[in-house]
């Protein structure tokens, strides 16, 4: 007797933001030597998965944040990542451009507040020259395209690698797609 088909979710390809040329990076976001109190935005990414000509969108995404410290930050200070959505890769909130570059926080973080609360708030340990990683979050996209902002509140700059491509900081978004699984008979 044939088994019934069933509905589930499947993990899509990870979108990995980081320094240009660094291992595994698929979208540019320049973490290298990012100063305390400064923010950076990354290149936009398309969350759609083309299935038979239909652009399938994820139900949700897993979000991982790792940063490579330089001078050891004071423990419990934070580094935030924000994700903003666009339906057309053009209309972006919070003065995001969809391209890698410095991000202007605005007076009293006025620009950044338009991005809503952060998706990940990485709580630092007192470790220098170390890649530290926060527990992943679940994020629900509000459009087909996504663009990140990262905001350094660690009290120290991120690591300034001699070869920037060696930088270990990453923001990783893993889309999770709905799927009807055809069971084998």
């Amino acid at each position: 007797m044939a088994l019934p088909d069933f509905a589930g979710t499947v993990q899509g390809s990870a979108i990995i933001w980081g320094q240009s040329g660094a291992s595994g990076v698929t979208r540019e976001l320049s973490f290298n030597n990012l100063a305390n109190g400064s923010a950076q935005q990354g290149a936009s990414a398309d969350l759609a998965l083309s299935v038979g000509g239909i652009q399938l969108l994820p139900e949700f995404c897993w979000v991982y944040l790792s940063v490579e410290t330089g001078t050891a930050p004071t423990a419990a200070l934070t580094f935030e990542a924000y994700l903003v959505s666009s339906y057309d890769n053009t209309l972006w909130p919070a003065k995001v451009t969809g391209s890698n570059g410095s991000y202007t926080l605005g007076t009293s973080d006025a620009n950044l507040r338009q991005a809503g609360p952060p998706v990940v708030s990485l709580v630092a340990t007192n470790d220098g020259n170390t890649v530290i990683t926060q527990v992943p979050s679940v994020w629900y996209p509000r459009g087909r395209y996504v663009s990140p902002i990262v905001d350094n509140n660690l009290g120290q700059s991120l690591r300034n690698e001699t070869t920037p491509a060696d930088n270990g900081s990453r923001l990783i978004v893993v889309p999770v797609y709905p799927a009807i699984v055809e069971a084998l008979s």
Binding site: A76, L77, T78, R113, P117, S121, V123
Partner: peptide, 17 residues
């Protein structure tokens, strides 16, 4: 929701950090 450094985020739509 957990520690967020020296900011206390407003998780409403109003962004009153």
């Amino acid at each position: 929701l957990g520690p967020t450094g020296l900011r206390l985020y407003d998780v409403s739509r109003y962004g009153n950090w």
